[in-house]
């Protein structure tokens, strides 16, 4: 499994250095430095309102849609500063995909949902190739067998868990390097959650994966690296197994043992 990273020069796919995020005057994130690599799934945990989702959104500049939001510090993708003027935000978001808390399939057919990204980015040269991308993306998201006979049905007609896997397939279809997942299972039932977690396992190594979750068991199950956020700062970052058995910081220990959160 660890041999899958051969085509990546550095093992650090994304790095952040001293990132601050402000909403107007209010500071939401304070000096976060973190490295994301290809081999491991990274989990961001912390009590709600701690800024983990905010931070995640800065990593593909989705926070650009909020006018009052300002980011300082450095975030790089393959060594390129993603906030540099030379970085094109449209391309960045194609390379750094995102899956949201609530499944948000477009009110289009399943096929068109998956084909949306490849179409706008011009990744397929013809109908056959597009068909292939759609099929492979759905296969990789573990949804192909369930939907292959009804690709023309609306994506919104699927169950919640299927919708979320559709959204993952949609993100995969543009061949991203990083996939950011913002509490992808919080709107799903336990069985659907288990399927998504299984999927994350399978995707590991092919994409750098960052998952925000408020569910510590989930972090323990799917991730190899965990970052604990509290009040806009990153308190601790390390191996998941280490973090959950032997946290270095008092606050982390309190959170993991359920004192607050």
């Amino acid at each position: 499994m660890n041999t899958e990273t051969t085509n990546i020069a550095s093992s650090n796919k994304m790095t952040t250095r001293n990132v601050d995020v402000f909403y107007g005057e209010k500071q939401a994130i304070n000096g976060v430095s973190i490295d994301i690599d290809m081999e491991n799934v990274t989990a961001f945990i912390g009590p709600s309102g701690c800024g983990k989702s905010t931070f995640l959104r800065t990593m593909n500049r989705m926070n650009d849609t909020i006018p009052s939001c300002r980011v300082t510090g450095e975030i790089t993708l393959d060594g390129e500063d993603i906030y540099a003027p030379s970085m094109d935000v449209v391309q960045l978001r194609a390379r750094v995909g995102m899956v949201f808390q609530k499944p948000n399939p477009f009110p289009k057919s399943i096929y068109d949902n998956i084909a949306y990204g490849p179409r706008i980015h011009g990744l397929a040269s013809g109908k056959d190739e597009l068909d292939q991308i759609v099929e492979k993306s759905l296969q990789r998201a573990g949804l192909w067998n369930e939907v292959k006979d009804r690709l023309n049905e609306s994506g919104t007609a699927l169950s919640g868990g299927q919708q979320q896997r559709l959204c993952i397939a949609r993100a995969i279809a543009v061949d991203p390097e990083v996939i950011l997942m913002d509490e992808p299972c919080s709107a799903l039932d336990p069985i659907a959650t288990a399927k998504i977690e299984e999927l994350i396992h399978e995707l590991r190594g092919k994409y750098a994966i960052v998952i925000v979750t408020h569910n510590m068991q989930q972090a323990a199950r799917v991730s190899q690296r965990t970052a604990f956020f509290h009040l806009g700062t990153m308190v601790e970052y390390g191996d998941t197994s280490e973090m959950f058995t032997n946290p270095q910081e008092e606050r982390t220990r309190d959170y993991i043992t359920g004192r607050y959160g």
């Binding site: 190739e129 292939q132 492979k136 296969q139 990789r140 995969i172 543009v174 061949d175 999927l199 092919k206």
Partner: peptide, 28 residues
């Protein structure tokens, strides 16, 4: 490759192979 969900992925040129050249002239 430990990926039972997508047995055909190695055949596909596109997915997972990072074949997209984002900096290429055509893409620009």
């Amino acid at each position: 490759m430990n990926n039972p969900a997508s047995p055909a992925s190695s055949e596909t040129a596109m997915i997972g192979s990072r074949s997209t050249d984002w900096h290429g002239e055509a893409m620009q």
